[in-house]
Design a protein around this nucleic acid. Sequence first.
DNA 1: TCATTAACCGTCG
DNA 2: CGACGGTTAATGA
Length: 296
Amino acid sequence: MVTWQRPSGLAAATASALRERVGMSARGGVAAPERSADGEGYQRDENKRLVSVLERCPLLAGLERREVEDIAALCRFQPFPAQADIFVEGQACDGLWVLASGRVRLYHSAADGRQHVVSFRGESSALELGPALDGRTYTATATALEDCVLVYVPKAVLSHLARNYPLTVRNTIEQLCLELRQRDIATAVATLKDARGRIGCTLLQLARQYGHRTPGGVRIGFRLTRQDIADRSGVTIETAIRVLSDLQRQGVLRTQAQVIEILDVRRLQHPTNCGECQFDCSVFGQAAFGGTANLL
DNA sequence: TCATTAACCGTCG
DNA sequence: CGACGGTTAATGA
């Protein structure tokens, strides 16, 4: 539990252990398919499940089912238990991880133990597209918030995609632009807004990505600790609690068992200054991360 | 372990 | 000065 909070020390050990696993899954997926009778049945089933995940991934949007099936044959599932690192900041990147199920926390670690969460990711999300494409090191750490299953797309398969399916190049560019916009907005929010505003943005963004309507408002569909909210907003846990308690007292939101429900979106937008905000938050509403668009 | 509250303190407009 | 937010400590679930 404490391990993933440590920045550098045991990150190296985790990283090399991970490279092992990644290597195995890559080679296994590409070169050594199962041969036994039972294995073939299992293989067909796994391929089906891979296809259903991959065809939802924005990178492969618009491809023929046949094409996705061919690509799926080159990929492989890899489960990660809750709290496990999928990859670590600074580690070499040799492929792309696509989230099939579960939630992942993408973040930077500071030497003093504090963390800056770049984003929380859900199904169909491609993790760290940049490093996957340029083959350089990861710029953030990805940790499973809960038990997760990911699809690993080896680097060789990625270049195969670019060569054989021009559509995926277009998709890739669009995805990168989207990420760029989000990072840009995030840095602006972090430097220009106060604690209330940053926490407000965090909540609104999460509601866009993962919110679903309830009789009373919008519920963010998974558990988040106060620390998670704090790390995403760039404040201490006490400040996050202070602000959230205040919002609860005002009846703007409700939280039960680490699940937040926004009861009054308007009043959350107000202190966040969404009205005059220059930043085009509509990017958060796009289906790119598998979220429900235009909820707010 | 997580959430909450309160007292205290430094910074800054 | 006063609002804001980080630090610390105590407490409860």
